[in-house]
Simulated scan of single mutants.
Amino acid sequence: MQQPSVSSGEVDFYIPSIEKPCKTFYIIYGDPKTRRPLVCAHGGPGAGHAYLKSFASLTADYGIPVILYDQIGCGNSTLLPETIGDINFWTIDLFMTELDNLLKALNVEDDYDFLGQSWGTILGSEYIISRQPKGMKHYIISNGVASGKLFGEATRKLISELPQESRDMILKHESSKTYDDPEFQEASMVFYKRHVCRLDDWPEDLMQSLNLLDLHNNPTVYLTMNGPSEFTMVGPLKDYSAVGRLHMVNVPTLIMNGEFDETTDSVNMPFFIEIPKVRWVTISNASHMPWLEDPDRYFSVLANFLLS
């Protein structure tokens, strides 16, 4: 395996309602001039690119250039803590505009593939439906969310299957909104170890991204748009839905999720039913991070789809 070249930088991102200059951080593995790149949108929202760094193996093993970036408000991009709670500022449209800006700045807008992971699939689906981008050639829905309502129903069912003590702690603190209580955090970890990442030892890259979502770190975007945990959706994303509009996704699409994923089959089913050119692969014994839990299988499926 040959180590790919790595470059990084920042792209100016003008936001009319923000007085200070804003920037989007990116990192590129390989050379997008040699082959069509895969642009990856991270989850959260607000998780940053760190937990996707192992996507560099697509470049090393298959020669596919990969572009990762930190969406505005997190990671190495401009942070805007003063906007926490402002649902009129933190919108899907803001992130679509940022994506437009990034693709143009990197000169890949005419020929690229796109992967969204978790929240990134909301961004990706809405981007395709509303923008109909001619440059996007393939779409990968990794651990996707077609509807906030479906996702909420799925996580409630998964919570009902947790050990009684963990379930009771979660419901108790959700009721009192004491999300920063250690009891709630401990019970949440039982859920995460089953349905977010099933590895015994979580990689440092994953911990770096999860730390951006930690309540004690004031995660502006995550708290505003989603809520205090993966399964406690109180922000506007709980009402999001692409159902009934996904037939407008007009590029070959691959759905990937894990056998024990918090984005269960029921959450992904609308993608499969509505998107015209679609295939679906579920990674056995994996959850919401299958590229970490079974990288050989995940990247093999992904590369075969992109190179076929």
Rank of each mutant, 00 (worst) to 15 (best):
S229A: 15
R167A: 04
I283S: 02
S241T: 15
V108H: 01
Q164M: 11
E293W: 10
D261P: 06
G144R: 01
E204L: 10
E126Q: 15
T253Y: 15
D168H: 13
K157V: 07
G9E: 12
V281S: 06
N101L: 02
T121M: 09
T97R: 09
G235K: 01
W90R: 07
L210G: 00
G85R: 10
P228D: 07
L246K: 01
Y222W: 15
Y26W: 12
P228C: 06
M233H: 10
F231V: 04
P270V: 07
L68K: 05
V190T: 14
A154K: 02
I141N: 15
S7P: 01
T121Q: 06
S77G: 12
I15H: 01
I275T: 14
K172M: 04
N211M: 15
V267N: 09
M256S: 01
F260L: 13
G258Y: 00
L171C: 13
T253S: 15
V108P: 02
S284L: 08
V39A: 04
F272M: 08
H247V: 13
E293Y: 02
N285Y: 13
V190N: 12
F271K: 05
M289G: 05
Q164S: 12
R297N: 09
N211W: 02
V11Y: 02
K149H: 12
G9R: 07
L206W: 08
P4Q: 05
M225W: 00
P203L: 11
Q185K: 15
D31L: 07
M169I: 06
Q2P: 12
L212N: 00
Y222A: 04
K33A: 15
L307T: 12
T178M: 11
M189G: 09
V196Y: 07
K134G: 14
P37Q: 09
H247I: 14
I273K: 13
T121D: 07
L58I: 08
A303Q: 08
D205G: 01
I122K: 01
S125W: 02
A187F: 03
L213C: 01
L106A: 05
G9M: 11
D201G: 03
V251A: 07
L102I: 01
A47I: 07
I27H: 03
I67E: 01
D86T: 08
L206D: 00
V243H: 08
